[in-house]
Design a protein around this nucleic acid. Structure first.
Lengths: 242, 242
DNA sequence: CGTATGTTTGACCGTCGTCAATTGTAGTGG
DNA sequence: CCACTACAATTGACGACGGTCAAACATACG
């Protein structure tokens, strides 16, 4: 079941092609070694596995090497609220630095390989490495930007604009990882998309159908191809920071 | 024009009744002095004054002593998006730690007194004061929680639930500052409320009218009194972290 | 006092949610 | 390997919530 690429494991942060994302650039080589020892690598997980639960003690953040993860929480009335999708090269798990407990659940959407980055190590290292601390604040700040982009999306945009924005966001993020920007597999279900975008499954499905009839995209279940990136982008006003 | 209470200026952080919110509790007295010198106090501002603009170099965060502030940004299509309301005792201006520039505008909603807290000082002090750094991360993390609560509100809740949530949120925050939880003045316009909650002015107005006809609230323009806090709270599922 | 702005209310309509039925897909065990 | 089941996705019919447009009204400010 494990795909072969999961076996490609860089044995340290030096050789990992994602280190630029996970780690501050200005890190001295000696410091990188320190960090390198702290990180728990590997952890190949199959679909629908929990990375952490809401309420769990916050100990680490996680970088995605391959696969995809969604974060969500359960609202007071017991319904699920998807709070984010995370792709290769991205870090998640910031929630709950505040009170020491995760406020979100995190589950894999497909078979995934993660790096666990223990936070205690970071705090210790931060004392001597101001860059590290700054880097983390930037990552948190980026999370805030993303959330605010989503807020704008939800309060101002139509169903079509929301779906277009998500597709463009995924496309851009994949491209930044040197993957195809126009042809990819959606890791999440229509229900997850709808939940994230504040729409019902039915509406999401209808929008996909409409996009297809307009030759904006071609899609077959989760495989998707963006035919007219330009026009799709013009619908996606708020995808920049999503 | 300046209200008398603006003249009540604590001349240092020690005597400020809000220091518990602005500053980490574990700060040693000597450290507090250092910080105290860094903070620019006073700055009484009248209504509709900009605290900072989007794009401004990020230099400080701000604590509200009295008055109220809204933050907002201009989306790609040129429309305003209100991103937050800030009340006495609260800190705003975190946005743009990421890239060194504010991503939001901030304006006073009424005559206000602010404390400007230069960030450079904090970064310098952080080296020797781990608590300070941790405190700041917590505050940022709180911002993330708030945003996610708003996302849930926007994607799952009706107009009535959204308005009720905002009212309850304001009520709780005022109460935490030892102000009345049931009778207060809304610092923002209906338009701002609608913008923040993803509703039109007309809808907000209608909801207010409906709440009034159900004897949940009594309101006359911006003066508001919560008559039935219990029932209003039951409508506000997602006000906890707002 | 007059104008600009904010607020309320009404009538109408469109988008999206709800309910329901159908089809397609993936995973399981005989 | 195929049948069976569970689940995901699609499509249609209908209705409600909230947006749009318009007008009246109240309030703040010069």
């Amino acid at each position: 079941m494990r795909s072969p690429q999961l076996m490609i494991k860089p044995n340290n942060c030096h050789s990992c092609r994602m280190s630029a994302l996970c780690l501050p650039l200005a890190l001295r080589t000696s410091d990188l070694d320190l960090l390198d020892n702290a990180i728990k690598r590997g952890k190949p997980m199959q679909k629908n596995q929990s990375v952490f639960y809401a309420g769990d003690r916050f100990t680490s953040v996680y970088a995605i090497r391959s696969g995809a993860v969604k974060s969500y929480c359960i609202t007071d009335d017991g319904t699920e609220q998807v709070t984010g999708f995370y792709l290769p090269g991205e870090i998640f798990g910031w929630d709950g630095i505040a009170n020491g407990n995760h406020s979100n659940h995190a589950v894999t959407l497909e078979t995934s390989a993660l790096c666990e980055i223990p936070f205690a190590q970071f705090e210790r290292l931060s004392a001597t490495m101001p860059m590290l601390q700054q880097h983390f604040m930037r990552l948190m700040s980026k999370e805030i930007s993303t959330d605010q982009a989503l807020i704008t999306l939800l309060s101002k945009n139509s169903a079509e604009e929301r779906v277009a924005s998500l597709l463009i966001s995924l496309s851009k993020r994949l491209k930044s990882q040197h993957l195809s920007a126009t042809k990819f597999r959606l890791p999440m279900s229509r229900a997850d998309i709808g939940n994230y975008l504040g729409l019902t499954v039915e509406t999401v499905s209808r929008v996909f159908s409409r996009f297809q009839s307009f030759d904006l995209i071609y899609c077959e279940r989760k495989e998707i191809e963006i035919i007219n990136l330009k026009r799709l982008s013009s619908l996606a006003h708020n995808a920049e920071h999503l």
